[in-house]
Design a protein around this nucleic acid. Structure first.
Lengths: 158, 158
DNA sequence: GACAGCGTACTCGGATAGTACCTGTCCGAGTGTGGTCGG
DNA sequence: CCGACCACACTCGGACAGGTACTATCCGAGTACGCTGTC
């Protein structure tokens, strides 16, 4: 079980777009060059973030990508959820209700499976932790990054 | 990102083996029939649990599978870890250190990436929750299951 | 009755396919900006 | 000077291909149990 690499890309893009907030929308070409990522595929991932209402894209010349909301109001949970659409770490297939083992069972299957419950609890703890951090938090974690971003972007634009 | 289906199988098998503790080892044929699962593939998954020291297998006629430890000392975390060997939900590829964005960076890359840190925190919360529950807990959650297991197994053996 | 031999019922490990999802690329269509050209 | 037109730079969505991990099956080899036959 491995999380999609696009999650890392998406989070980094969100942080960068937060830093470059004043610089209008940023084109996919520049975002891809910034992190040296495959442009076409990165675009696909950002489109997913757009559908989730996290990013906004403006078409046309001078168009590009920007945060749809202030970074304080975008949690890492939302970004992960948008990029991993399914998002069910564990999905119970109700194995207990099949085969010889299930024969003669009473009403106990009305109650949710204990294994499924434990997995869901763990998953909830994971999500809660992700929801506790926002893009603004991530931006604040490296103030040097913010300055460097602005500096390099100016150089890139010229 | 989806967790392997084998995790659900493995957990159910551990619980069942806990319930059937007195019934010597249980053959893969019976385990597969119990949950109506593909026998050969289930065997592969159980072999992984055996390598992790969670299950024990005895060869020969009358051989089969049994818990390697009392169920109080097997956590769900161990089972998940054994069946998902990699286990790194999120793996940081240090995207920040590539491309235009990384140019002119000082010593800040010596510090771990903030995004990676948040993801690791969340993952830790997930693991902690999984480690807090044991196979014995799962067994205790459905006492009817224990009785039905013994009943159906007797019928199956005859 | 004791012991060797053999068939059976298991597990172990490797080899091999099929499938689904992730990664990556390409293309046609749509849209807004800025420049150009004619009035 | 002003408005229509056009080229350009973007995004959007679908189609398609390669890679990797998950799912699944098959086979040969090894091991323990229990039966059978011989002494």
């Amino acid at each position: 079980m491995r999380m999609s690499e696009g999650v890392e890309w998406g989070l980094h893009c969100c942080v960068l777009l937060g830093w470059l907030d004043d610089q209008a929308p940023v084109s996919i070409r520049r975002l891809a060059a910034w992190f040296e990522l495959p442009q076409e595929y990165l675009k696909k991932r950002l489109q997913a973030l757009s559908r989730a209402g996290i990013l906004t894209s403006s078409p046309g010349a001078r168009g590009g990508w920007s945060l749809a909301r202030p970074p304080e109001r975008i949690t890492t949970m939302e970004v992960v959820a948008a990029l991993e659409d399914g998002l069910d770490l564990f999905s119970c297939t109700e194995v207990r209700q099949h085969g010889v083992g299930s024969e003669g069972a009473g009403s106990e299957f009305a109650r949710p499976c204990g294994i499924s419950a434990v997995m869901r609890r763990a998953e909830l703890a994971w999500r809660r932790e992700l929801a506790a951090h926002t893009i603004a938090d991530l931006m604040a974690r490296s103030p040097e990054g913010a300055e460097r971003a602005r500096r390099n972007y100016q150089r890139m634009a010229s």
